[in-house]
């Protein structure tokens, strides 16, 4: 019986609070956690020719940065918690991609923080929380 909880993480303090909350929940039910980080991306954006040329390199760099600087420390911090934690980094529309990750993992719950830091985080937790509330097919917890 899968009891996976998906936590959306952007490296902010509130995301970390959401993470702590999810770890407690998972411990209580004997479940596991997927820490998800979504890089905002639209295949319909417009790029210059020079950007096209470098896109593949940039993507590699962005993924690497997300892996080592962002999710790496999170995984490390919760390694001793006794809860199995794995990570997932994807490109796409943030809300849609989070739902996709939850669906693929057959998750029972999504946990997000309410307020992030910086402009990206604002977008992340501004509209994302709102649209997740509207569309999430599994229980959604928003940690303040």
């Amino acid at each position: 019986m899968s009891s996976t909880i998906v936590v959306a993480h952007d490296g902010s303090d509130s995301a970390e609070r959401a993470m702590a909350f999810a770890v407690d929940r998972a411990k209580a039910i004997g479940g596991s956690i997927i820490v998800a980080h979504v890089l905002e991306w639209s295949p319909y954006s417009f790029l210059t020719p020079a950007e096209l040329e470098e896109r593949h390199v940039r993507r590699k760099q962005e993924l690497e940065r997300a892996e080592t600087a962002l999710l790496g420390p999170v995984l490390k911090a919760h390694a001793q918690s006794g809860v199995p934690v794995s990570s997932e980094i994807r490109y796409g529309h943030v809300t849609e991609t989070l739902l996709k990750i939850a669906k693929d993992a057959d998750a029972i719950q999504i946990v997000i923080g309410r307020k992030g830091a910086g402009s990206f985080a604002d977008r992340f937790f501004g509209s994302v929380a709102g649209s997740l509330v509207q569309t999430c097919p599994v229980p959604l917890t928003i940690v303040p």
């Binding site: 295949p43 020719p49 096209l52 896109r55 593949h56 996709k100």
Partner: peptide, 25 residues
Amino acid sequence: KGDYSDPNDAGEVSHFQALATALSG
């Protein structure tokens, strides 16, 4: 439209982007 694009390739140059850039030239 991206109907035939592998979702795992998200973040790479899409058909749309290549077309749009070529068109703006």
